[in-house]
Structures are given as C-alpha cells and as structure tokens.
Amino acid sequence: MSKNLSEQRFGLFLILPSFFILALIALYPILRNLVLSFMEQGRFVGFSNFSALFQDERFRSVLINTAIFCLISVPLELILGLTFALVLHQKFFGRGFARAVSFLPWALPTAVMAVAWKWIFNDTYGVFNDILLRLHLIKEPLAWLGRPNLAFFCIVLAEVWKCTPFVTVIILAGLQTIPLELYEAIRVDGANSWQRFRLITLPLLKPAILVALIFRSIQAFGVFDSIWVLTGGGPGGSTEPISLYIYDTVFRYLKFNYAASMVCFSFIFFLLFILIIYLTFSRRQIEY
C-alpha cells in the first residue's frame, strides 16, 4: 500500500516539470486568448470584438485564402507523400540516400528555404522562369510572386515541398506495420499489383492516412513562415492566410484583443474540424 503511494509520488515528481511548462505555455495561452477576446484595453466589452470580426472584409478574405490553400496543398501532400512512401518502402540501391533526401525538406528551416524559393521564383533572374523559357512553355518571364494566381501557386509549391516528408514518414511507418504475409497470401490468390494496393495496402493504411490528414490540415491552416517570406501576404492580400493577418493585427496595428478574438474563432474551428473527422472515422477503426 505504501509502496504504491511512494510510487505515485515518484511518478508525480518526474512528470511535474513537464506538466508545469506545458500548462504555462500551452494551456494558459488558450485560456487567456478566450479572456482577451472579450476585453478591450483591460475593460470587458462582451462580444464586440466578435461582431467586428464578422464584418471584417479582410478577415473573410483571409479565411477563404486559408481554406483554399488547405484544400489544395493537403491532398497534394497526401498523394505525393503516399507515392514517396511506397517508393521508399521498396528495396533498391541508394535507398538510404533517397530516404535522407526525401526527409530533408522537413529538416531545413522553413524561412530559410522560403528565401531560396524566392530566389527561384525571381522574375528576372530566377531559375524557374529560366527552365520554363528553355522548355518553351512560356514566351516571356512571368512575375511569379507578383501576380495573385501565380503567387498562390508558389506558396502551395513551397508548402507541399516542405511538408510532404511529414506525410511520407507517417505513411512509411504505417506501411511497415503491414505483415508481408498478407501480400503473399493475396498474390497466391491471384491479385496483381494494383489489386494488392487496393485490397491490402490502402485499407490497412487508413489509420496512418488519417493521422497525416488531421495533423497536416491543422498545420496548413496555421501556415505562416513560408508565406511571410515569399509574398508577405501579397500581392494585394491575395495570398494572405489567417496567421499573417493575426500577426499583423498584433504587431502592426497593435490590436491585441481583436487578434485574440481571431484566434478564438480559429480555435473553435479546429475543434469542430477534429470532432467531425474523429466521429466520421472512429466507427471504422482498424485493429489487428
């Protein structure tokens, strides 16, 4: 009996530092956000921040930008990540190098590589234009970061490049949990490669794909680094995501409380998203 108590105390002692720092830096801000959003300059103002939010044109447009950004980049990352993982799961000469290289974008600083992308997309001296010109795909250099649709393409590309490894690793882990014998059994049953993929690989990867989907969607929603560097939200706010608007609201317009209300809105949005996904898929959990 007493052993259990001392065990409890020991465990508590081990966990306490992490607990404390997490409570301070992760939990407290979320709660404080809630409080701040109902205040203005230290006075309680009820829902006025939120009502201003709903009338804010710019907020609406950044929401749409962010939504479009997620809807385009996340599926691309999933497909690309799945493909890379399938390739990297096989044995071939140079696999170690290929795996290292595929992991690389995740390991490199987003902002620094965004600067690299900026140089690549430079309208006059950039190599992207150069390649396209040489391949005769365009007739004159395009202002990649200067035109709204093109700039959107650039930020999606930079994000997909950076974040695909995240998906690749998760799916690789999932692939490794599939017993080889299942493939052998279905081969003896007569399945060709596509059928093997459809009947074994894909269904058994569902948990991994789900994890990747949830995490990537939320992370994509909060994208900041690469867009700040590449376009700063321009041209004309066409590539501005929510996080950039929040940042501006805090550091340029110094409207703390308004920013807090934006954060609260996003937070509730996340919770709903996670809830929906969880409810949809939790009924079809796969276990061995």
């Binding site: 052998e184 081969r187 007569g190």
Partner: peptide, 29 residues
C-alpha cells in the same frame, strides 16, 4: 507467377486479412 499456378497456400500465421470479415476473407480470392 503464384497466381498462375492454381495452388492454395496456408501460412503458419494464417495471414487472414485483418480488415475484412470472414466471408470477405474467403471470397476475395
């Protein structure tokens, strides 16, 4: 190829497809 030889292989670990029910396991081949 294995599929062309018309044999049935029963593995030591049975290799049942975990995401399919028994009917499907038998039917899929």
């Amino acid at each position: 190829l294995p599929q062309e030889r018309d044999v049935a292989f029963v593995f030591q670990s049975y290799a049942l497809y975990p995401h399919m029910d028994v009917y499907e396991n038998i039917a899929v081949g």
